[in-house]
């Protein structure tokens, strides 16, 4: 049975801070959008939809693997849980790799930080999200280390749940960013 506070209170302070930060950035995005509708109408056509889609698939799949790791530890299957966590990590490393390739593509196509208001918003929000994913990767490495040394069991895995909650929240934020920059005409 899942805990009423998944993980621990501390991680939820962090998650609420993260959600507040991105809510403010989304408000800035919409403020810019209503004041510069043409730039935001044309903006998505200048970005690589393939890169945005690839990172969406990566985030969702990595999140799914972490959820499977939680299921496994609830069954006291620590070794299987570790395999799911390794799969989540390997998948998630694809996110910064795609980002690097995307930024190279952007620069070749004139999408730069000093560009129009759409491009500035895009870089500001997506770089912030990349920072949160990078923290998540470090957290995931720690959780794998703990799992490898038998740190979690069916009766005690609040650390794993705390990480899972953060990772899913970071995935949720990307699900909001993706349509704003890559899809919404």
């Amino acid at each position: 049975m899942p805990a009423r506070i998944p993980g621990n209170r501390a991680i939820w302070v962090g998650i609420f801070a993260e959600l507040t930060e991105f809510t403010l950035m989304f408000l800035v995005y919409f403020f810019a959008r209503i004041n510069h509708p043409q730039a935001f109408h044309e903006g998505p056509q200048k970005l690589s939809l393939a890169a945005g889609t690839a990172n969406t698939v990566i985030m969702l799949t990595s999140s799914y693997f972490v959820a499977r790791a939680v299921l496994a530890i609830r069954r006291n299957q620590s070794d299987i849980s570790l395999r799911w966590l390794v799969a989540a990590f390997v998948t998630a490393v694809g996110y910064p790799v795609v980002k690097v390739l995307e930024i190279r593509w952007n620069i070749d196509h004139g999408v730069v930080g000093g560009g129009d208001v759409f491009q500035m918003s895009y870089y500001y929000l997506t770089f912030n999200h990349l920072v949160h994913v990078s923290w998540g990767l470090l957290g995931l490495a720690w959780i794998m280390f703990r799992t490898f040394f038998g740190g979690y069991s069916a009766g005690n895995h609040s650390g794993l749940l705390a990480f899972a909650s953060y990772w899913h929240a970071t995935d949720l934020i990307w699900l909001m960013i993706f349509p704003l920059f890559y899809v919404l005409p």
Partner: peptide, 30 residues
């Protein structure tokens, strides 16, 4: 993500409402 991956449909109502509310901000503003 909120209900199935995070399992917030079975979590504290305060946490559930805040995160579900966050999930509605962007679609509503669109």
């Amino acid at each position: 993500i909120i209900d199935q991956f995070m399992e917030l449909n079975q979590a504290s109502p305060v946490i559930r409402r805040i995160v579900r509310g966050f999930g509605l901000v962007v679609p509503a503003l669109m």
